Amino acid sequence: MAQALLTDEEIDTALVALEGWRRDGNALVKDVPVPPDSHDWLSRAVMNEAEVLDHHPDIERGEHGIRFRLSTHSAGGVTARDVELAARIDQVLDGGARDRG
């Protein structure tokens, strides 16, 4: 089922509840300062959450952390699925990662 793009107002409203997230063009973005030795577990935990939503975030690893970039490519921008995944990433960061091995 195709995802409907959120309006600018809907995105702004969602960002109020998503601490540290920002809009960058047609995506939601969050930079997370973590040491390189934490990149693997954090990426795995986020991908576990993404699989539940059948979503595919862009994860960029850098020297000082990880950048998560969420956009529903098939819709051409931000959808409710991106907002849901952003909230789940925040849960992972708060210690609520789904344990899927």
Rank of each mutant, 00 (worst) to 15 (best):
V32N: 08
L28E: 01
E51Y: 11
E49K: 00
V46G: 04
P33M: 04
A45Q: 03
L53K: 02
P57I: 01
D58S: 12
H39P: 11
V52G: 06
S43L: 11
P57M: 02
E51V: 11
L42V: 12
S38G: 07
V34C: 06
H39E: 05
P57F: 02
E51W: 07
S38H: 13
P36A: 11
H56E: 08
A45Y: 00
W41R: 10
S38V: 04
H55T: 01
L53S: 06
R61K: 10
R44S: 11
D31L: 09
D40T: 07
L53F: 07
A45K: 01
A45H: 01
E60R: 12
P33S: 15
D40S: 14
H39C: 05
K30V: 03
L28I: 03
P36S: 06
L42P: 11
R61I: 15
E60D: 13
D54P: 04
N48F: 08
L42R: 00
L42M: 15
M47L: 15
A45L: 01
H39W: 02
R61Y: 06
D54R: 05
P33H: 05
L53E: 05
W41D: 13
V29Q: 07
E51S: 12
L28Q: 01
D37W: 09
H55M: 07
V29G: 04
P57A: 02
P57C: 14
I59G: 07
A50V: 04
P36R: 09
M47Q: 15
S38R: 13
V34Y: 00
P33G: 13
V52P: 04
K30Y: 01
H55Y: 03
E49H: 02
L28N: 01
D54H: 10
E49N: 13
P35M: 12
E51N: 15
N48M: 14
A50S: 15
S38C: 12
V32Q: 11
L53C: 05
R44P: 05
L53A: 12
D37A: 12
E51H: 12
A50P: 13
R44C: 07
S43Y: 03
